[in-house]
Computed example of a mutant assay.
Amino acid sequence: MDVNELLEKEETGIAPHFIQPLKPQIIEETSKAILQCTVVGQPTPKVKWFTGKDEIRPSPTKQLSYNPETGVATLEILEPSPEDETIYRVKADNKFGQAECRANLIISKSVAVTQPLVMYAPKITKPVKAIVASVNEDIVLEADFEGTPKPDITWLRNGKEIKPSDNFEIEVEENKTILRIKKKTNKKQKGGKYEVRAINIKGGGSFLWYSCNN
């Protein structure tokens, strides 16, 4: 083999080229970033990563790898910060040439996905029952309700709102309300038309109960 044949054989090779270029990435701020591409050449190219003109070096927060058998080059950013939201450049070169590709990384704030709240007007699901009460015991009126969002509950006597006092106690639970008329309340204050109302932004519902006046 003469010198020219030997030189020709030594110079046989393939310049680097990307089989799979780098692609833009969008990640959540709590996720690690993985930037990856595939570049091959003969002889095996040297692969370097850059941001701007600065070469990226391995560090506790950044890991670099290149598999010469598959050509896969990877940059892992373990704890992305706002500074990492930039354009990344991969450069591969051997003595037959060089190739380069670039892509940007976007870090977005995670948004919790929630189901929409289905709202519906309140209604009384268990109306107040008529009762017979002794003058020596409290009168207790109860009603069950439902509605979304949770309705505001109001008790009325003869069309006027009842406020909690020494004579009247009002309890509102998750789906139930109780009006307690104390036994010490005089007969004139006890008698009348009682009403419970449940109201939210979708509407309202009510139920009437008439007390005895004698």
Rank of each mutant, 00 (worst) to 15 (best):
M1K: 14
L7D: 08
E11Q: 14
A15I: 00
F18G: 00
F18K: 00
I19L: 10
K23G: 01
K23T: 06
A33P: 06
L35M: 03
Q36C: 00
C37Y: 02
V39C: 03
V39F: 01
Q42A: 12
P43Q: 05
T44V: 13
V47L: 00
V47P: 01
T51W: 08
K53A: 14
D54F: 15
R57S: 09
K62Q: 12
S65G: 10
Y66S: 07
T70Q: 07
A73Q: 01
T74Q: 11
L78S: 05
S81T: 11
S81R: 07
D84A: 03
D84L: 03
I87T: 07
I87Q: 09
Y88C: 00
R89T: 13
K95M: 13
F96G: 09
G97K: 07
A99E: 01
A103R: 00
N104L: 08
L105K: 11
L105D: 10
S108H: 13
V111L: 04
V111T: 11
V118Y: 09
P122N: 09
T125K: 03
K126W: 08
K126H: 13
V128T: 14
V128F: 07
A133H: 09
A133W: 02
S134C: 03
S134Y: 05
S134F: 02
S134I: 02
V135W: 04
N136F: 13
D138S: 05
V140E: 10
V140R: 13
E142D: 15
A143L: 06
P149W: 00
R157T: 10
R157D: 10
N158C: 05
K160P: 06
I162Q: 12
S165L: 00
D166V: 04
N167W: 09
E169R: 07
E169G: 06
E171S: 07
V172Y: 11
E173V: 03
I178K: 14
L179W: 03
L179A: 03
R180K: 12
K183D: 06
T185S: 12
N186E: 11
K187H: 12
G203V: 02
N213L: 07
N213R: 12
N214W: 12
